[in-house]
Amino acid sequence: MSYHMRIWEGKRPSSAAHPDEVLLRMGDLADGRYLRGEDPDPPNPKIAEFIAALLRRWPDIEEEGSPWSSSGTGYADGPTLTVHIQWGREEEVSEFVAGLAMVYGLVCYDCQPGRGLRP
């Protein structure tokens, strides 16, 4: 288990309920591709830049000191990224992820119960 955050390129939802709808649509699309045996789409340029910035801050999972619980910080699919953070590092790393998402103009959703959109 790890601490999960979803990052995506698009309009920031206007209500607390709306992110759930957006996330469900994203999940349905990804699940459909998976069930058809299709690979995820490569990350779009902004998501790829965001991942590169995260990996400049902290090393990938294979290296000592990495806070990630999966390679490349998580699962990228087109305009979306699910970030997987090791428990015990979640406060420091999630703050950075949320702040960096804001700098890149990306939407950041903290998947833990009671958290929601960040910042």
Rank of each mutant, 00 (worst) to 15 (best):
residue 3 Y to F: 13
residue 3 Y to N: 02
residue 4 H to N: 08
residue 5 M to R: 08
residue 5 M to E: 02
residue 7 I to P: 12
residue 10 G to V: 14
residue 10 G to C: 08
residue 10 G to I: 14
residue 10 G to Q: 08
residue 13 P to T: 07
residue 14 S to Y: 08
residue 15 S to H: 06
residue 16 A to M: 14
residue 17 A to W: 15
residue 18 H to D: 15
residue 21 E to Y: 11
residue 21 E to S: 12
residue 24 L to M: 13
residue 26 M to V: 12
residue 26 M to K: 13
residue 31 D to N: 14
residue 34 Y to E: 15
residue 35 L to N: 12
residue 36 R to W: 06
residue 37 G to M: 05
residue 37 G to S: 03
residue 39 D to T: 12
residue 43 P to F: 02
residue 44 N to L: 11
residue 46 K to G: 07
residue 46 K to V: 15
residue 46 K to P: 12
residue 46 K to Q: 13
residue 47 I to V: 14
residue 48 A to T: 08
residue 48 A to F: 07
residue 49 E to M: 11
residue 50 F to T: 11
residue 51 I to G: 03
residue 56 R to I: 11
residue 57 R to W: 10
residue 60 D to S: 04
residue 63 E to C: 11
residue 64 E to C: 08
residue 65 G to K: 05
residue 68 W to Q: 02
residue 69 S to Y: 00
residue 73 T to K: 04
residue 75 Y to N: 10
residue 78 G to D: 03
residue 80 T to I: 11
residue 80 T to H: 12
residue 80 T to K: 10
residue 84 H to F: 01
residue 85 I to K: 01
residue 85 I to Q: 00
residue 86 Q to W: 00
residue 87 W to C: 02
residue 88 G to W: 00
residue 88 G to Y: 00
residue 91 E to R: 12
residue 92 E to C: 02
residue 93 V to F: 01
residue 93 V to Q: 00
residue 94 S to R: 04
residue 94 S to G: 02
residue 94 S to F: 00
residue 95 E to P: 05
residue 95 E to Y: 05
residue 95 E to W: 04
residue 96 F to D: 08
residue 98 A to C: 11
residue 98 A to G: 10
residue 100 L to M: 10
residue 101 A to Q: 07
residue 101 A to P: 11
residue 102 M to K: 13
residue 107 V to G: 05
residue 111 C to F: 04
residue 113 P to T: 04
residue 115 R to A: 10
residue 116 G to Q: 05
residue 116 G to L: 04
residue 118 R to H: 03
residue 118 R to N: 06
residue 119 P to T: 06
